[in-house]
Design a protein around this nucleic acid. Structure first.
Lengths: 229, 229
DNA sequence: CACTGTAACGGCACTGAGTGCCACTCGACA
DNA sequence: TGTCGAGTGGCACTCAGTGCCGTTACAGTG
């Protein structure tokens, strides 16, 4: 957009740091794609971004970090959703909302998300790292759910199962969207697909279709019987 | 047991290789425990096991591998359970059986399992690796379940949720057992705890106890009452 | 405008993981 | 006993990641 005015001083201000960071990500993703992940060294990335090798490690903890740089921030945003929720809000809509928060962050930069998706499927090292990242979300979900289900019998198990199920469903929907190139008109379908997990969660099911509907029919039937008697 | 007769030739036969492998695992776990994971080098482990540094990498792909060396074999055994199952066997008992197969392998060497448990909880690098390993199980479960649920509506989602739920429940029960030192008289409790996940799986519930069974009986009773009227 | 403090920078040197290569040695087998 | 193959140890190498240090650019103050 705007010329970078000689590009001689870049990282000294706050915007400068963000700019350098972004250039490093672009350089890393581009090089990983063109010459492969294993065959790309930190020197290559730093040189392509026009900074020193040492500076790379001031922005990212490791080589893999250059692809998913905002993981901690993403976790923090999800934690915020949980902490801002009303303590008596049912679990299902809450976890759905939290999951969609993650989805929104992926949708912020679809191109990078797709590129990362391809890399994490082709490079074993990156796939394992992705597994670990996803597991951080699972733990976060489970931790908050454990608080909500505390006291009820098998509450811990319900928290573990619910957290794992939500994260798995989220990834299923997200990957389907990313695999097709993350089109803008596929966002709604992805959301809907994710929300279907609500019918498969243990414990209090959603009121529409599911156990509640049956229960309600039963209650109505019993009511009719009692009154008719 | 038997003396190792001078211990001069160890790795040349099949038993010799198994012996060297075991010595390396013992050395690694011991050193990780006494002087910490980060502060233990491959040279330390190799020297403690009495082999050359280069030999270590002929037995294990990496430093972390020395703790969970039989991961591939474990995955293969679980895959066997799925492949040996009758195609029309209901999913719930099958995934329970597969999960208990994993549990049996942990129970084969409780001491090593407990030590690994402690390490994977204290060292971030090992915890992330453990997450990746667990995810391999989840993918394996999900892959087979997808075949079974193929055709039914939302079968893929059901497979993803069921696989994630089973693995999560398995880990919950396993960790509780390991955290208490993996006592032999805690094996049954761990098994029972794991099996409770059957009540929380989506789709066809287990016929014995469970909300659905109760609901169905109620519904039938009400139906009889209504018709008898 | 000059001065000064702070923070990011580049570069150098170092540790340690992981790999390729090669000569050697042990054990098996004819 | 001679030979062959597999496993071994050691050397040298690449590269990820870290500590250190002198330098440089920006910001704030007089």
């Amino acid at each position: 957009m705007n010329g970078d005015v000689g590009r001689l001083r870049r990282g000294r201000s706050a915007e400068g740091r963000a700019e350098v960071r972004h250039e490093l990500v672009v350089a890393a993703v581009g090089l990983f794609r063109t010459q492969g992940y294993e065959d790309t060294t930190i020197d290559d990335i730093a040189a392509a971004a026009g900074v020193g090798r040492r500076t790379f490690f001031r922005y990212f903890r490791s080589k893999e970090d250059a692809i998913s740089p905002d993981h901690e921030a993403a976790l923090a945003r999800v934690a915020e959703v949980f902490e801002a929720a009303h303590p008596r809000e049912p679990a299902a809509p809450l976890v759905l909302r939290a999951g969609e928060t993650v989805f929104d962050m992926y949708a912020e930069d679809p191109h990078l998300s797709v590129e990362r998706f391809r890399l994490t499927h082709e490079v074993p090292a990156l796939r394992d790292r992705e597994s670990a990242s996803v597991d951080h979300y699972r733990r976060l979900f489970t931790r908050y759910l454990r608080l909500r289900f505390a006291g009820e019998s098998d509450g811990e198990l319900r928290a573990a199962v619910t957290g794992a199920a939500v994260v798995a469903a989220h990834n299923l929907a997200l990957r389907a969207w990313l695999a097709t190139g993350a089109p803008a008109d596929g966002v709604d379908a992805c959301r809907k697909r994710f929300r279907r997990v609500a019918d498969m969660l243990p414990g209090e099911p959603v009121p529409s279709e599911g156990l509640h509907a049956v229960t309600r029919r039963l209650e109505a039937a019993v009511g009719r019987l009692e009154h008719g008697r």
